[in-house]
Amino acid sequence: MLQVKHLSKSYTSGNQIYPVLNDVSLKVEKGEFVAVMGPSGSGKTTLLNCISCFIPHEQGEVRLADQDISNLDGKELARVRNRQMGFVFQDFMLLDGLSVFENICLPQIIAHGPVVQMEEKAKNICRLFGIEKIMEKYPAEISGGEKQRTAVARALMNQPYVILADEPTGNLDSKSCKAVIDAFLQAKREMGATIFMVTHDSFAASFCDRVIVLKDGQVYGELKRKGTRREFMDGLLDTIRTLGGDGDDNE
């Protein structure tokens, strides 16, 4: 579903060039829930931003559903973002002036989808994520966990090929964090969603099928979930400890 081939990206400051991603390749299958972890400065968020085409990369390819999206023009890219990608941000990025329900409908409104089906679908998703009681509320009136579940619901509205989540649990307490992860798992289970999540949270990552570990802009390794979730989390913690950091970054 999502394939990254030999991706490289660097930042320039004055005369200095700082490589952030160096020949990164990875693949995410349809219906898979994959996390990217790594210590501070390993390039996790930069990788996500390159995949989202929010920032350009120098080398390599980003393929979504077998289409190279690296060099699309603005119009085509907007269409891909609207129909084929769903975004979940650490800061939720909900529009304060719209209710929860309206925020969820936004991707369909942008796509000029039929109103009746759109509203029906939005209600179904709200029910699925247990947020139907707050549908008419505004972002300022709901908790952080509810905001993030709203953001997940919005990301799923157009049934994208992949949901790209940037530290979705970064601003949440443990209870809300679990609720958001449950929303992702529900989306995967009941809607067949593919999720690609950048996180520094080993607890959140332990619910994934697979975790890709980055170090110094390169793929350091990959851990597949075997056994219980607890064992998987212990394995993740060991790996992160070996790399020397808790992965808390915003690079």
Binding site: F54, K75, R81, F89
Partner: peptide
């Protein structure tokens, strides 16, 4: 920003 991220066209 939100609209652009959700795929609205700049035009």
């Amino acid at each position: 920003g939100v609209m652009l991220a959700l795929g609205e066209e700049r035009g």
